[in-house]
Nucleic acid binder design. Sequence first.
DNA 1: AACTAGACCAATTTTGAATTGGTTTCCAGC
DNA 2: GCTGGAAACCAATTCAAAATTGGTCTAGTT
Lengths: 223, 223
Amino acid sequence: MTAPERSAEDLRAAILSGDLAEADRLLPERVLAQRLSVSRSRLRGILDDLAREGLIFRRHGQGTFLKPPPAQAMGRLGVLARRVSPRHLMEVRLELEPAVAAHAAERGGAEDKALLLRLMEDTLRAPDLAGYERADDIFHYKIAEMACNPVFLTLFEEIRSLRQATDWTHARQSALGPDEIAENSIQHGTIANAICASAPAAARQAMRRHLEQVAASLMLRQG
Amino acid sequence: MTAPERSAEDLRAAILSGDLAEADRLLPERVLAQRLSVSRSRLRGILDDLAREGLIFRRHGQGTFLKPPPAQAMGRLGVLARRVSPRHLMEVRLELEPAVAAHAAERGGAEDKALLLRLMEDTLRAPDLAGYERADDIFHYKIAEMACNPVFLTLFEEIRSLRQATDWTHARQSALGPDEIAENSIQHGTIANAICASAPAAARQAMRRHLEQVAASLMLRQG
DNA sequence: AACTAGACCAATTTTGAATTGGTTTCCAGC
DNA sequence: GCTGGAAACCAATTCAAAATTGGTCTAGTT
C-alpha cells in the first residue's frame, strides 16, 4: 500500500474510509497530502467537492471532519457538563430545534432542500447503529444550517456538543432498538417533507413530536 | 473624603453609588476593601447581603457587577458579533425568552417571585432612561434565572452579551420614547403576574408579545 | 463574639505560541 | 499562455501557562 493512489475516486474513497482520521477528524491537509502522495492543491480541490456534497465538514483553525464539527471554545459549556442533567438538555432542545426547523422551512434554499432529502434517505440506508447515529446527526445539523441564522446555528452547535459531553459522562447508554430507529426515520421523513414544502408550522410540530419521542425513549431507559 | 466610612449603611451606599466601579464592574474585593478602609471579611459580608437582595451580581473568576455579568468566554460569539444583524438576534430572542418565561412560571420559587415583582416595580420607578434600561435588564435576567435550567441561563446570557456587543458597533440607537417605556412597563407587569401565578402558557404569550413590540420598535427605528 | 489579617483554593480571563484551513505567489513544464 | 505543484504567507482556532478575582479556611486581636 506504499504505492501512491492517483484517481480522484480512489482519493475520495480513501478520505471517506476514515482510516486517515482520528475520532471523526481528518489529518491536517499538509499531512494528508503527503500521506496520499498528492499536492495540497489537488487534495484541497477534492476536499472542496466533498464539502459541497455535504460529506465532510471544514472549519478554519479547527480541522476537517467526517461529522459536523464540535462547538468552538467550550469554555463555559465544559464546566457546565458536570451539573447539567439530560432533562435540562432535553428541555432546551424541545424549544430550540422546533424553532430552527420552522425557520429552515421558511428560508431554506432549493439546493439545501434537495440535499436534506438525500440526508434523510441516508438515515434509512444506514447499515448499523453507528452509521444511523452519524446520519441522524448530520440530518439535524443540516436543518440548523438551513435556518440561515448564525446565532441559531451557534446555539445548536453548543447544545449538540454539550449533549455529547454529558453522554460521555453518563456512560453512553443509547442502545436504540430497531423499532425505535424505524419510528425515528418516519418522523425524519415528516420533518424533511414539511421543510421542503416550506411549511414552517408543520415543520415545527413534526420536530417537536420527534424530540418528544426521543425524550420518552431516554426517560424509559433511565427512569 | 480620605476619612474612612464605617457604618454598614455608608458602605452599601458607597458600593452602589458606582463611583468604585468601572463600566458596571466593581473594583476587586481586595482593592475595594483597602479603598473603603475595611477588612475584606466585613466587605464580603456586606457584598453577600447585597447579592442576596439582587442588587449586585458576583461570579467567581470574573468579578462583582452592578448589572448581570457578561457571558463568559465569548469565544465564538465574539467573532459572530460582526456578521450578526439585529434581525437574527431578535428571531432568537423571540423563541428563547418566551420559553424561558414559561419555565420560570413552572419552577420559580416563592422568594424569587416576590423579588421579581419588586424588580418589575423598579422599572416603573426608574428616574431616567439609563435607569430604566438597567432595571429592564435585571428584570429579564431574573426571569432567566428562575427557569432553574443552567443551559437556558447560559444561552440567555450569551444572547444578551451578543446583543450588547452588536449594539456597540451599531452605534447605540436605542432612544426609547416615553410612550414606548410606558407600554413596555405594562407588558412587564403582565409577564410578572403570569409568572407569579404559575401560568406557563400566559407567561409565554406575554413575553412573546412584549418582544414583538420591542422588535417592532427596532424595525421602525432603522427601517 | 466580631473583626482583622493572611494564606490558600477554585473559576475565569488573558496572553502568546502552536496548529490548521485559506490565499497568494512563484515557477517549472507542457 | 496555461496548468498544476511547491512554498510562503494570511487568518481563525486551539492550547497552555500566567495573571486576575471571588471563595474558603485558619489564626490572631480586640
